[in-house]
């Protein structure tokens, strides 16, 4: 296997408890015998990674050649910067168009007139570094619009069952 290419997980049977899904894309950090140390990228929460050991039989090349220089850069950054070596993916607790409620009062939301208890709708099916877009925009009885669509930390909201 060419370790300068991206890889894709084709078997997730023993990784489900780590929330790592079949089809996850990553690249190989090191290899030893029938196992590989690989870094996988969480498509649901961009910025989230999982560093796991997988069997070579459980991965396949992902047709996306990466230049040797870029691969060296990536691996060097990971080693030098002590990239988070947790062995699981975080799960995104919300789906697109879920209704959510803000459960904290923070200045960064309050200055936009969005307060604890306000409800909104999740606008995307992914988060970026734990922030997701939520539309709090509201029309009142006089057709006046208030609040707006902002990025919110997923820990600051909870699902509303309607």
């Amino acid at each position: 296997m060419n370790f300068n290419k991206m890889i894709q997980l084709k078997n997730d049977n023993y990784l489900k408890s780590n929330n790592i899904y079949k089809g996850a894309i990553g690249f190989v950090i090191s290899s030893s015998g029938e196992y590989l140390d690989a870094l996988f990228y969480n498509d649901n929460i961009k910025g989230d990674t999982a560093y796991i050991q997988v069997k070579k039989d459980d991965i396949q090349p992902y047709d996306l050649p990466v230049s040797k220089e870029l691969m060296i850069y990536l691996k060097t950054q990971i080693k030098e910067n002590n990239l988070d070596r947790k062995n699981y993916f975080k799960t995104l607790p919300f789906k697109q168009y879920d209704m959510v409620k803000l459960i904290v009062e923070k200045d960064k939301y309050a200055k936009l007139n969005i307060h604890k208890g306000d409800t909104g709708v999740v606008m995307e099916d992914y988060a970026v570094h734990d922030y997701i877009l939520v539309d709090f925009g509201t029309i009142d009885g006089q057709m006046k619009y208030s609040k707006g669509c902002i990025s919110v930390n997923i820990k600051d909201i909870e699902l509303v069952n309607i």
Binding site: M6, Y41, K46, G47, L70, L74, Q77
Partner: peptide, 14 residues
């Protein structure tokens, strides 16, 4: 592609 952009962004994030 997007996956490569994300990989590099994460590596550079610090």
């Amino acid at each position: 592609p997007e996956i490569l952009r994300e990989a590099i962004r994460i590596a550079m994030a610090i």
